[in-house]
Computed example of a mutant assay.
Amino acid sequence: MSAWSDFNDAKTNTNVIPKGTLAKVRLSIRPGGFDDPSQGWTGGYATRGSTGAVYLNGEFTVLEGPYARRKIFTLIGLYSPKGPDWANMGRSLVRGMLNSARGISDKDNSPEAQTARRIRGFADLDGLEFVARIDIGTDTNGEEKNEIRGAVTPDHKEYGALMGATMAMPFPSATPSGSAPMPAPAPSPVAARPATAPTNVTRPSWAR
């Protein structure tokens, strides 16, 4: 039988990037208009859902490699009425993104590194470029979709090549002391590539 009359052996059309792929991405925050100055949530970046959960609606665009221009949508938890877990995972993800974008080892606790992990507001995250570890989750219909659950820092052997010329980008001081950004070399960029299993930063079902 012709291949154009029997399609049982045709490959399934999936648009999901393989789990564990490393890729350089840019975060764009889709504003939700919710502010709480007491929490430092200003500028209209946060979104408050119908359950009372608060999050950043993140759109991550792959910048290089075979998946360039692909977009991955992930919520970064800020608050859940059911407990602190989602917010803690959101803070962990942001810490990793800042480490990656600013060329800071996760083990570095120097004054400069601590300054690099501070932001003046969510506007400092909007447009942030870093190396992400891509995972696979499910949407509200149970279909597979990509998610960003963790970032790759300079501790990873692939970091320098993937970050390329923007490694350790200058960043504004988030403290009155105004510590200067740390310089770093700029190796050549390479394509996105598979890596090890992702970290545990994700959005639990109870927070959706």
Rank of each mutant, 00 (worst) to 15 (best):
S100Q: 08
P189W: 02
G127C: 07
R26P: 01
T61Y: 01
I76M: 14
F171V: 09
T175D: 15
M169A: 13
I17L: 05
G77Q: 02
I104G: 05
I119H: 02
P18M: 06
S80D: 15
T175W: 09
T138V: 09
N141G: 15
K145S: 05
G33P: 04
G32P: 02
P170T: 04
S80R: 04
S5F: 06
G49I: 04
A116I: 00
Y159R: 10
I29D: 00
G58M: 06
P194I: 05
W4S: 14
S92C: 05
A53N: 14
Y159A: 09
A116M: 03
V94C: 05
P176C: 09
A151Q: 08
T61L: 04
N57L: 07
V54K: 06
D139Q: 12
S110K: 05
K82N: 13
D35K: 07
G44D: 03
Q114M: 12
Q114S: 12
S38I: 08
F7V: 09
A195Y: 09
W86E: 14
K24P: 02
D124R: 06
V201E: 07
E112K: 08
I72R: 00
F130E: 05
A123S: 12
V190H: 05
F130V: 05
D106K: 02
V152F: 07
V94I: 15
L162F: 10
G77S: 03
K24M: 10
V152P: 00
D135C: 12
G96Y: 03
T196Y: 06
I134S: 00
N200F: 11
K107Q: 13
D9S: 11
A197H: 10
Q39W: 13
M169S: 11
G65H: 08
N146P: 06
A195I: 04
T153I: 08
S50T: 15
T140V: 11
A207Y: 03
A180T: 09
G142T: 08
D6E: 07
A132K: 07
V16Y: 01
R26M: 13
I17V: 13
V190K: 03
R118W: 03
R48H: 10
P176N: 15
M169V: 14
F7P: 01
S105D: 14
A116W: 00
G164M: 04
F122T: 00
A195F: 10
S80H: 07
V62D: 00
D139V: 11
G77N: 04
A53W: 03
R208P: 00
P176M: 13
V152K: 02
D85F: 08
V201Q: 12
G127I: 06
R102T: 02
N13K: 10
Q39V: 13
N200M: 10
T175A: 15
G160R: 00
N200E: 11
A195M: 08
L93E: 07
R48K: 15
P176Y: 11
Y79W: 11
V190A: 04
F130Y: 14
L27E: 02
E147S: 09
E158P: 02
A101K: 00
P84I: 09
